[in-house]
Design a protein around this nucleic acid. Structure first.
Lengths: 130, 130
DNA sequence: GGTTGAGCTTCCAGTAGCTGGAAGCCCTAT
DNA sequence: ATAGGGCTTCCAGCTACTGGAAGCTCAACC
């Protein structure tokens, strides 16, 4: 299968698929013309990575998850540890973003948004604690 | 004032302050020895940017906010538009992250996390919709 | 006066995860 | 034969810094 078909079936852009080969996530075969020839296994790996990325896992996490997926002697604890750690990072990020949202929402709400210069948003940013 | 003092007073790393000069957010004066000489105005601008960044504004937003801050003829509507747009992006990101968290939390919860290979996390990632 | 160490400078490279574009080969259809 | 689309590689750029090397400057100490 050529790259475009793989792209359509996995939903990943061709550029991304080439990139994933570059960094060693997959190693598709090559035809005599130099074209990549993707196997069903390549396809499954790409789809796996696509879903892991969709859940926000880093490429390095994806690499480790792929390896565990292919390792019949794995311990589910290892998988769980990766997911747990990632979950904690997401929760931290969520907290940070929620704080930003609260502050911003308050400021936006307070700002008249008219043609006068007075603006609580700028006032807040300019507050000097130096 | 030298860069380290500015770093301590604003909480921004020296590297970051130099970077902000590089990209034109500030233009501190120079002493005869070539050292940057920061004015109070530079300090306030850096603190302003620091707080805007803390609220997640992009550098380009910061640049625009700085310009509006320094423009007495501004309309608060322009400031509000930047903040509103940023707020919407944060809300979108929050939603995305919350979905990730929900899925991940469910998967992590379902995974035994022992020394057996069976793992609902991998099973979920490997689900073939191709 | 000399030396040492900290602080300052510039410049280059690297981070994450792609993405865009250029130059050029290959394949199929007309 | 030629036109087009698809494939290839390679290089550059995106965000917002950050690390490190090489080298100048300054203040302090002997």
């Amino acid at each position: 299968m050529n790259i475009k078909d793989v792209s359509e079936r996995t939903g990943l852009p061709s550029k991304t698929i080439r990139y994933y080969e570059d960094i060693g996530l997959i190693t598709p075969a090559r035809g005599e013309n130099g074209y990549r020839k993707f196997s069903e296994s390549d396809l499954h790996k790409l789809a796996f990575v696509g879903r892991a990325r969709h859940l926000g896992f880093s490429i390095e996490d994806c690499r480790n998850l792929l390896a565990l997926w292919g390792d019949n002697g794995r311990s589910s604890a290892d998988v769980r540890a990766i997911a747990q750690s990632h979950l904690e990072q997401i929760e931290a990020k969520l907290k940070e973003l929620a704080e930003m949202r609260d502050t911003l929402a308050r400021l936006v709400h307070c700002c008249a948004g008219d043609n006068r210069p007075d603006c609580p948003i700028l006032e807040d940013l300019a507050q000097t604690h130096i």
